[in-house]
């Protein structure tokens, strides 16, 4: 244990490569969106529940994109429930990833010597 404490005091700057960390994080995200999501609770969320309890749920209107092929995290025309959610999830990850990685890279300064 004492060696561990010693290590901590001289924190190594790079324990895991950034690429490794990002790939691991993407795999966790993929597992959440394509597998764990099938077991997600289908109960109304906090706001929906409050709206139902206090009686203003019916004031909600359908989104203009309610007929989107991916609406409510299902894929139009895919009968299998798991596949339907998984495809929607993967598409969502790809789109979010493309926009977010692109935007962040665009805004980033060249390497951290500030």
């Amino acid at each position: 244990m004492s060696t561990q404490t010693d290590q901590r005091s001289t924190t190594p700057a790079h324990r895991v490569r950034t690429r490794t960390l990002v790939v691991a994080g993407l795999l966790v995200s993929l597992a959440l969106a394509a597998v764990v999501s099938l077991f997600a609770s289908a109960s109304p969320d906090g706001l929906e529940h409050v709206a139902e309890t206090l009686g203003f749920a019916e004031t909600a209107a359908d989104s203009a994109v309610a007929e989107s092929p991916l609406a409510d995290y299902g894929t139009a025309g895919v009968g299998n429930e798991w596949l339907s959610t998984a495809i929607a999830g993967v598409v969502g990850l790809l789109v979010t990833g493309l926009v977010a990685f692109g935007l962040m890279r665009l805004l980033a300064r060249p390497s951290g010597r500030d």
Binding site: T18, R19, V22, G25, V28, S29, L93, P110, G112, D114
Partner: peptide
Amino acid sequence: LDDRTAPLAGLVAVFVFA
């Protein structure tokens, strides 16, 4: 953001979506 942290920022968005 710099080029060392930008990939983590992209990952954070993907993870939150998932």
